[in-house]
Design a protein around this nucleic acid. Structure first.
Lengths: 124, 124
DNA sequence: TAATTATTGCAACAATATCGCATTACATGA
DNA sequence: TCATGTAATGCGATATTGTTGCAATAATTA
């Protein structure tokens, strides 16, 4: 299934590039210039995730946030990093540090979802 | 506001003690002997969280999971640990390791939500 | 330019979680 | 033991988030 370039896909990517942060569908819809259906935004976001262009985090507000994969490796085995969610400015940013954990051999970790919540630099 | 002992509160606590894992409202409702309303279970769980008896994690399935605070300190500053969610047996367990992260000074972390997902010891 | 098929919008749906309000029942003091 | 204040509960309604089916649209390419 080959992907197609559409105004929608470009607009979504541009918003994410511009803010440089992880955003929810809702936040994206608000910041975007053109009008895009909610379901479509989700589909675009999920498609980008499949393609390794975006990654998804679920914060403890139970919402999904999507961000550009920068240092993420395209060869699947992405380096998992922490995310910081500021409750004041309501943004989520990817933190540079890698997530380290130790776990018994037999356990197989397929996904890592780490979000720290609090107030960020500017809001503290 | 003084807490009261009710069959509901005891039943919920007992289920969590018995399994020793983090459970969702749904899982608790299924395992419990008596019939308790959904909203009530949520209220009981949230009350226990306020009292520092339980702690809550949100997994990347966007659901809330509640577990007994064992090594959690009652003096608020609880030691944050990783959680492991097995997609096969659909349970979440608290891992012993502490979550270590570094973050710029001005940032203030108020909550840590870390969930690893995959297959556990028994299901691998 | 026509044809193929990925993409979109709309509406409906599912699931999780919360809230208001009337009712019930726990716990305490008399 | 009983009466009373009020925390806890059940019910229904509601909010929010995210997904899906289907028909219509539009991007690619030959």
């Amino acid at each position: 299934m080959k992907r197609r370039n559409t105004p929608t896909t470009e607009a979504v990517l541009n918003v994410l590039k511009k803010t440089g942060k992880a955003m929810s569908q809702d936040a994206i819809e608000q910041k975007i210039e053109i009008e895009i259906n909610r379901a479509t935004i989700y589909r675009v976001l999920n498609r980008f995730c499949e393609d390794g262009i975006l990654h998804k985090v679920v914060a403890e507000d139970s919402k999904q946030y999507f961000a550009l994969c920068l240092e993420c490796d395209k060869n699947q085995e992405s380096i998992h990093h922490f995310h910081f969610r500021c409750i004041k400015c309501e943004t989520i940013e990817c933190l540079p540090g890698e997530v380290n954990f130790s776990i018994p051999d037999k356990y197989k970790v397929k996904n890592v979802n780490c979000v720290l919540t609090g107030t960020c630099d500017e809001c503290s």
